[in-house]
Design a binder for these strands. Structure first.
Length: 466
RNA sequence: GGAGCUAUCGCCAAGCGGUAAGGCCGCAGCCUGCAAAGCUGCUAUCCCCGGUUCAAAUCCGGGUAGCUCCUCCA
């Protein structure tokens, strides 16, 4: 398996800390609002990574956290009057539900900041004890970036001048402008507070990931985990700071490899609340089926920016449709073994830093060839079973093509409409038998107006939601 | 102001020094009562200018354009 390491800025062969096992930690969402398409893309990218590693025979342990202590959550508590717990559990549930709709498999470990306070306190205390962090009179604890000679290695940001630092909010209590809060002490009674030996307060943004990794993973004396992932925007300062904390607290590096996914853009611009162009996943799921969104969002390499638009989504859907039309032709059947060359080519493509484009091209090729063979031998059971096995393999590796094909084409059509379609098709069959093509064509037009396209086959007329 | 990424057919998108994958759209044909679906065929020299090399979309230098990060952010 080759992966692109965003710190070394080059593609590297993955050599795990422990042979045959891969540990992954992905930065999950801060649960103060609904997930947007960007969260989906990140989740999808690392889901693909995990599936590929498993297909290659690795034992994968993936952790994805939920940040459930945060300033924005606290703000939501203040504005809504709801409890922090109410808010975070609501958004965790909806996140998991929406990701499930996209076919994202659950992480093996889903740590929360509120459940990791012990580990957080331990790590901060260690940093204080060893002189890498300092407590200021207010009770805040800061990481002393000047004590970490490697600070800046992750984002490759070393010589930042004073002028740039001025953009960062100055706190007089900090020793160096780049220092960041490990712990924020309570300032007033209403603050969310957790008691620790250094002060009552709450963790800073970066510390939870480092602490959770130490709590759940045991790497070797060089690295805590194999791969650390997240969105490209997390590279700095989040991952830089995580790396610094972990390095100073443990004496070794946090992760052997770093992977970052690109952004989802709308109309060529980053999707964000301030621009007013964010697209919530729940809204997208109301219009498009999760599987189609998955196919579409995964169809561009994870490191590239992704420009979301309906036209491209439709093209992606048409591509997925072809797989399901093929599946229609081989069902019902008993999946045998996927074609060896096809299977290995598919894995090989994905093992090259998740080259989905090549994988999809291979699938399209398989579809065309299968249709061709089926045209020649429509009743070849062995052929059909192999094709079915190919499709099942695609589903396990890439997470699409697993539905029952007739259902796939009929998503969102209710029973009443289905009955109407059936009776119209029945009438059309009669008309065709009587060579009343005027009537049969009229029915076809009527169905088309309903958003239903039909296709005549030797075994009868099939219909699809257009 | 500093750092980085990207630029390939109308659109999306691979390519990782050896002579341009795939999909959507379009055109022609086969099939069909006609369609649809499926199949077959056709459609680019890679933003611009230099350089390195036997050989560059791929490497180097200089432009131009777009995006991102440096502040919460997937």
């Amino acid at each position: 398996m080759f992966i692109y390491d965003s710190v070394q800025k080059t593609k590297l062969q993955l050599v795990p800390i422990k042979a045959g096992e891969v540990s992954i930690y992905v930065c999950g969402p801060t649960v103060y609002d609904d997930a947007h398409l960007g969260h989906a893309r990140s989740a999808l990218a690392f889901d693909l990574l995990s599936r590929t590693l498993k297909a290659l025979g690795y034992k994968v342990t993936m952790a994805k956290n939920f940040t459930d202590i945060d300033d924005k959550i606290i703000k939501k508590v203040e504005t809504t009057g709801k409890s922090m717990q109410e808010i975070t559990s609501f958004y965790i549930d909806s996140y998991l539900k929406e990701m499930a709709a996209l076919g994202v498999r659950r992480a093996d470990i889903e740590p929360k900041a509120t459940q990791s306070l012990d580990a957080i306190e331990t790590m901060i205390q260690t940093l204080i004890d060893n002189g890498f962090a300092y407590r200021v009179p207010s009770g805040d604890v800061y990481f002393d970036t000047s004590k970490d000679s490697h600070y800046g290695n992750i984002s490759r940001r070393v010589g930042e001048d004073e002028e740039n630092q001025s953009r960062v909010a100055h706190t007089d209590e900090k020793k160096n402008p780049k220092d960041f809060a490990l712990w924020k002490a309570c300032k007033k009674d209403e603050d969310i507070c957790f008691k620790t030996s250094f002060s009552s307060g709450r963790p800073g943004w970066h510390i939870e990931c480092s602490a959770m990794i130490e709590k759940h993973f045991h790497g070797n004396n060089e690295y805590s985990i194999d791969i650390h992932g997240g969105g490209a925007d997390l590279l700095f300062p989040h991952h830089e700071n995580e790396a610094a904390q972990s390095r100073c607290a443990t004496g070794h590096e946090l992760a052997k490899y770093w992977m970052h996914n690109g952004f989802v853009q709308i109309d060529g611009e980053k999707m964000s609340k301030s621009l007013g162009n964010s697209f919530f996943l729940k809204d997208a799921l109301q219009v498009y089926d999760g599987e189609i969104l998955r196919y579409y969002l995964n169809s561009v390499h994870y490191r590239n920016d992704f420009n979301f638009n309906e036209e491209d989504l439709l093209a992606a859907k048409k591509r997925l449709d072809k797989l399901y039309r093929l599946k229609k032709r081989v069902i019902p059947g008993q999946a045998s073994v996927p074609h060896p060359a096809f299977k290995s080519a598919l894995i090989e493509a994905m093992a090259d830093d998740l080259n989905v484009s090549v994988a999809l091209a291979l699938i399209d090729q398989m579809i065309t060839q299968s249709n061709e063979k089926l045209d020649l031998n429509p009743k070849d059971k062995k052929l059909k079973n192999e094709i079915l096995a190919n499709i099942e393999f695609i589903d396990s590796l890439l997470g699409f093509g697993g539905k029952e094909p007739f259902e796939y084409f009929q998503i969102g059509i209710d029973e009443t409409v289905k009955n109407k379609i059936e009776s119209l098709l029945h009438e059309r069959a009669e008309a065709k038998k009587n060579k009343d093509f005027t009537r049969s064509d009229a029915i076809r037009e009527e169905l088309l107006a309903m958003g239903i396209s039909i296709m005549d086959t030797p075994s009868g007329t099939l219909w699809e939601k257009a």
